[in-house]
Every structure is written in structure tokens, then in C-alpha cells.
Design a protein around this nucleic acid. Structure first.
Length: 476
DNA sequence: TTCTAGCTGCCCCAACAACG
DNA sequence: CGTTGTTGGGGCAGCTAGAA
């Protein structure tokens, strides 16, 4: 789409349009007929076709975020008209128009080219929209499961999901609290960094690499720079191998390009967007909108995850988002990441004064800027996480606490993952055995919250070892 | 900007202990 | 015996952080 041609031809376009409009519909047809002989802008044909198209040949759409009037953010009414493989959007409020003109895929001599696209993310529908013709999809894997297994066995990739939330880290960072994210990165660096993970397969593991959105990168970069090897944002890692040597990665949050883009794609497909829900339940109410949403979230995170461990050693990647592509081999979840609330941090800080002495709720309540009830709740919570020890002298008497460890700005419990690296070595035949084990990874330990809380809970969310198979379909 | 889930403060409750 | 103080719990309202 020649931007230059667009600008260069603008004057002629306006003149031709004026002439055509003065000549009414016949004039437009006349112009359209001669569109390719140089006296009209090449796109005038499409533009005018779109403008004069009968209503029954067009699709009427209303938008909320998408529009042509840059001074307005209220959306507009557009009509979508298709002509062959091209699509035209015309603003009913006369602020502009958009032409989608897919490439021809023909050689100079008129012969059709064969085109082969390689894409790990498989959004057939979006591809068809973009190139204006049907695509024939060939999958090198039989099933999603086979694909996951390939990523796992061959690329030695393991993904750990650390939050049930989507975490759309895009747009304004106002009112956002990234303490939990920082705590997560630090915990990963401490628990899995510096060669502590499966020395036999991941020899060069050191500090993790981090991929996140641009705003978050700016926000947390300074805080975690000592804990990580590298940090980059989604938009900058596509096709990049800068993280390829890192065997430990953290992907924080997912992208959302804004409703504007979603509505634009849907409009080009002639679909009306109606947005409902949020987070996981977000639904744009039309196939293209929802496919594009998955493209923004799942596909981008998939690409980011695949940036890590491009050597034979593979990688373990912690994904702090629920927007994970179904192809990703998620070997663990259930990590708990929380940012401590204002009052929790204050109570914990105040409690530090009592270092070795015992203290009660009453000792804190006067120096702390929150209520007695809150202090009680916080102390109970901190005790449960192992930052405090609670001595209960029985009902009716004040509980006595003493400090064990000082909590930071957040708390992270990572699931233990050490099942796989050795397995791929032991059974080098990627057959039934690995399949069977694959199922076991989804079997959750039914009692995640008992015992092992001593070290403020690190590693409590356990995954069953492969020999503790309690459920799952029979192999084969 | 709007919606909502979770945090927080507040008040009430039952059960108990210590004190006078 | 009554008063005061303790713990945890429930319910409720107001606020805020997070998501889009």
C-alpha cells in the first residue's frame, strides 16, 4: 500500500472525485471505468465503489472505538463493501474511508504465485482476511497434544502459569501495582536461577530473561535489573533471538492493542462488534473480533515464550498471565503471587520493631494507621505464610507473635517443577510413556495448603511426581 | 471512563479469662 | 457476680485497585 502514491495522488483524487460527484452516479461509474488509465488515483475506483454502493450490497456497522475522526473517540457508523478480494470501509459521517487491498500474488507475467506462509499461531481466519483468499492449512502436528509434546520433548520447553488472571498490561499504568510482578521475577531468579535447576540439562541457566509489555518494562526495569539477565517488551522481540540463550524466562502480562484495532479488523470482515465481559470472559461478539483478541493475547505470549531457550537445552518459562495458547506445554500452575496491601506492609514493618520480643495485637494497634480488626487479619495472614510465629495461649488471651522473617512488598509461592528434564533423558523415546506422563501433569494435588508452610510457603503448590499417578486416561 | 472483586473499617456476636 | 479485655467470625458499607 503505497503511502507515497497515496499522498502524490491526493490532489488528483480530490479533483477526480469532485468531477465524478458533479456527474452523479454516472460520473462515478465513468471514473471507475477509467480508474486504471492514470487519470484517476488507482484507489479511486474502490473508494468510489464503496461510496456509491447500494445499501443492500453493503454491511452497516457501528463502532465504539474505531473511527476516522481523530478529534473524536466516540466511534462512528461505517459501511463495509466488498469488491472481489478487496474491502472498503466508508465512514457514514464523512470523516474518511479505509481500503483493504490484499496483495495480488501474481507474477509480472500474470502467472499466479504459490505462496507458503509459516506461522506457529494458526489463525486461519485472520490470514484469510489479510490476504483476501482462502488458505489451505497444513499442520505438521496431528493434534494440539502432539504439538505440545513436540515443544516439550524436542524443544525441551516447559511453561508454568503463575496467575489465573489475564493481566492485560497495556495502556495507562495509573493505579496499577506491580509489586507482585517484581516479587515473582525475584523469586524465579532466586529459586531457579544460577544453575539451581536440573544441572544435567540446563547447564547454563543463570539469571532469567523477562518479556513484558512496554509500560511494565519501564515500570519495573529499575527494580529488578540486578535479578535478571535481560528485559524486553513484546513489540521488540518478534523474530528476535536475543533471549535464545537464556534457559529461564518470565513472561509478564499480555498485550491488548486496544478496541480500535479489534473493531477495524471486524469491520473489514463486515462484522459488528459488541463487547461484553472482561478478563477471561471478554467477548467481542463476532468471530473476527474474538479471533483477533486471541491473536493479541495468546499468540503474542506464545511468541514471547518461544523466544527463550532456542538451543538444545530448552527453557523453563514462567508465564504471569492466563492468556496462554493451547499449544503451550503448561507443566505447572498454582503459583501464588500477591502484592501485599498498604496496611499489610505497614503492620509488617511495625512488627519489625519487636525483633526478638513477643508482641500482641494491642502492641501494634496504636502505632499503626489501621484498625484493630485489620491488624488481626494481617497478623493471622502473615503467620499463615510463615513470616510470623503465633503462640496461642488459648481463648480469651491475646495471641503472642514474634517475627521470623521480614516480608517484602509481595509474596510468591512457586510450584515445584523438576519432573521433566530428567525424564526426557531417561526415556529418550517420545512415545507412549511421555504421553502418559503428560496426563499426570494436570493432576493436581488435592491438598495444596497443608504442611510445609515453614519457609513462608515457598514450594507449597506441589505437582505430583510421575509415579504418583492418581488419575488420567489409560495410555494409548 | 465504568464495572467489580477484594480490601478495609466498623459494629455486633459468642465464648472465654482475669480482676475486683 | 459484673466489668473489662481477648479472639475470631459474620455482615455491611465505602473505597480502591484492576481490567478494558
Amino acid at each position: 500500500m503505497g503511502r507515497g502514491a497515496n499522498r502524490d495522488g491526493a490532489a488528483e483524487l480530490v479533483q477526480a472525485t469532485l468531477t465524478a460527484v458533479e456527474g452523479g452516479e454516472d460520473g462515478c461509474r465513468e471514473l471507475a471505468i477509467h480508474a486504471r488509465d492514470g487519470y484517476a488515483h488507482p484507489k479511486a475506483y474502490l473508494l468510489l465503489y464503496g461510496t456509491i454502493a447500494d445499501d443492500d450490497a453493503a454491511t452497516e456497522l457501528t463502532t465504539d472505538a474505531f473511527g476516522f475522526d481523530l478529534d473524536s473517540d466516540n466511534g462512528t457508523n461505517v459501511k463495509q463493501v466488498r469488491l472481489g478480494r478487496n474491502a472498503v470501509l466508508v465512514d457514514r459521517n464523512h470523516h474518511g474511508a479505509l481500503i483493504h487491498e490484499p496483495p495480488e500474488f501474481t507474477a509480472r507475467n500474470g502467472q499466479r504465485n504459490s505462496v507458503i506462509g509459516l506461522d506457529a499461531t494458526d489463525r486461519e481466519h485472520l490470514w484469510e482476511l489479510a490476504i483476501g483468499q482462502n488458505v489451505e492449512r497444513r499442520d505438521i502436528h496431528e493434534t494440539p497434544r502432539a504439538r505440545r509434546e513436540f515443544l516439550q520433548q524436542t524443544l525441551n520447553l516447559q511453561v508454568v502459569q503463575t496467575t489465573p488472571h489475564t493481566k492485560t498490561y497495556e495502556g495507562s499504568k495509573k493505579g496499577r501495582n506491580f509489586d507482585g510482578d517484581i516479587a515473582l521475577v525475584r523469586a524465579v531468579a532466586e529459586e531457579y536461577g544460577a544453575g539451581r535447576l536440573r544441572q544435567d540439562t540446563l547447564t547454563s541457566t543463570s539469571k532469567p530473561g523477562v518479556i513484558t509489555t512496554k509500560v511494565v518494562q519501564q515500570e519495573i526495569e529499575d527494580e529488578i535489573e540486578d535479578d535478571i539477565s535481560a528485559i524486553d517488551h513484546y513489540g521488540n522481540v518478534t523474530g528476535s533471538n536475543a533471549m535464545g540463550e537464556l534457559n529461564l524466562g518470565v513472561v509478564v502480562g499480555c498485550q491488548h492493542f486496544g478496541d480500535y484495532t479489534v473493531e477495524k479488523w471486524a469491520a473489514l470482515a463486515g462484522e459488528q462488534v459488541s463487547r461484553t465481559g472482561r478478563g477471561e470472559a471478554l467477548d467481542y461478539g463476532c468471530p473476527t473480533g474474538n479471533a483477533y483478541l486471541k491473536h493479541m493475547r495468546q499468540d503474542q505470549t506464545l511468541q514471547a515464550v518461544l523466544r527463550f531457550g532456542c538451543d538444545e537445552e530448552g527453557a523453563i518459562v514462567f508465564a504471569h498471565t492466563a492468556a496462554l495458547h493451547e499449544d503451550l506445554p503448561v507443566v505447572g500452575d498454582g503459583a501464588v503471587v500477591r502484592a501485599f496491601s498498604e496496611s499489610t506492609q505497614e503492620v509488617a514493618r511495625t512488627a519489625q520493631q519487636f525483633r526478638d520480643q513477643e508482641f500482641t495485637v494491642s502492641d501494634l494497634v496504636d502505632t499503626v494507621d489501621c484498625s484493630r480488626r485489620t491488624v488481626r487479619r494481617v497478623l493471622a495472614e502473615l503467620s499463615e505464610m510463615g513470616y510470623l510465629e503465633r503462640h496461642d495461649p488459648g481463648d480469651g488471651l491475646a495471641n503472642e507473635y514474634h517475627t521470623i522473617d521480614e516480608p517484602g512488598s509481595g509474596d510468591v509461592e512457586l510450584p515445584t517443577i523438576d519432573t521433566l528434564g530428567t525424564q526426557t533423558r531417561e526415556n529418550d523415546h517420545p512415545g507412549q510413556d511421555s504421553l502418559e506422563q503428560y496426563y499426570t501433569w494436570f493432576v493436581r494435588d488435592p491438598s495444596p495448603q497443608d504442611e510445609d508452610r515453614s519457609q513462608h510457603g515457598v514450594g507449597t503448590a506441589t505437582l505430583p511426581a510421575p509415579d504418583e499417578v492418581t488419575a488420567g486416561p489409560p495410555p494409548g
